[in-house]
Design a protein around this nucleic acid. Structure first.
Length: 256
DNA sequence: ATGGTGGGCAGCCCA
């Protein structure tokens, strides 16, 4: 099974480039974030024509997540169970033997903002949800835009970013508390190029200067992590015309 | 130099 995660920053805006990418790469599963699209407006037909089932949980203007899957997804769950958050940031499904959770973690804006407080509280609710999932399922996979760079090697200029949103200690601690439930960062299971980023700001020629962060992650339960045979970031879509500011991350699993 | 660029939807909010 080959699975990709990608913050597309508006699925409608990205369709002209996304569709050929989907057709060519043909992953078994794609998790999308920031679709920015109501479910009834999701561009279903051209994606279904390429052989994908679609489960989406979107809203107007902001947020929105979707799972595209060649196999029939089962037991769809929207949001964090018991959560009354109006922001649509989580969708889960079982595909084959994998319980898959697709997340768009809040950005947090700045460490002194209310959005940062919301981000930390949100991550604690996610942690509780994932702890329960690990009790129920052997193969749990959590992917998406985490809006946290786990370590300094995931940051183009750690000194310039020190203490800022995406790298601050409370955010990294919140991510570490999730990881210590029993998840592995699949990207770091394999040798990777230095300066591996998944996001580059649209501003300040950040992509041309390769000023980026690795904030798009794949966390697998230990049993599933042992079945992962590859994980990489494909930066080429970031060089397209009218790109998303994120690149897709792909992992391959030796599992049905 | 506290900017800049992009998406969405109506003069800003959010990233």
């Amino acid at each position: 099974m080959r699975l990709a995660t990608w913050n597309v920053n508006s699925i409608k805006q990205r369709m002209p480039r996304f569709l050929p990418w989907l057709d060519e790469r043909s992953p078994d599963v794609v998790c999308l974030q920031e679709t920015k699209c109501l479910d009834e407006q999701f561009p279903r037909e051209p994606i279904e024509e390429l052989g994908y089932n679609i489960e989406c949980f979107g809203q107007k203007t902001y947020n929105g997540v979707a799972i595209l899957s060649r196999a029939e997804p089962r037991d769809i769950a929207m949001g964090i169970p018991g959560d009354n958050d109006p922001q649509r940031r989580v969708i889960a499904a079982t595909i084959g033997a994998v319980r898959l959770v697709n997340v768009y973690v809040p950005n947090g804006q700045a460490v002194d903002s209310e959005k940062y407080t919301y981000k930390l509280a949100w991550l604690e609710r996610l942690r509780a949800y994932l702890a329960a999932l690990l009790e129920e399922h052997e193969h749990v996979l959590v992917v998406g835009d985490f809006n946290i760079a786990p370590e300094d090697r995931d940051v183009h200029d750690p000194a310039a970013w020190e203490g800022s949103v995406h790298v601050s200690a409370p955010e990294r601690d919140a991510l570490a508390r999730i990881a210590t439930l029993g998840f592995s960062d699949l990207f770091r299971q394999f040798d990777q190029p230095a300066k591996s980023w998944s996001w580059w700001d649209y501003r300040m020629n950040a992509f041309r200067r390769d000023h980026g962060l690795r904030i798009d992650l794949m966390l697998a339960s230990k049993a599933l992590a042992r079945r992962c045979t590859a994980c990489h970031i494909d930066r080429s879509p970031r060089s397209w015309e009218r790109p998303s500011d994120h690149a897709p991350v792909t992992a391959v699993f030796d599992i049905g």
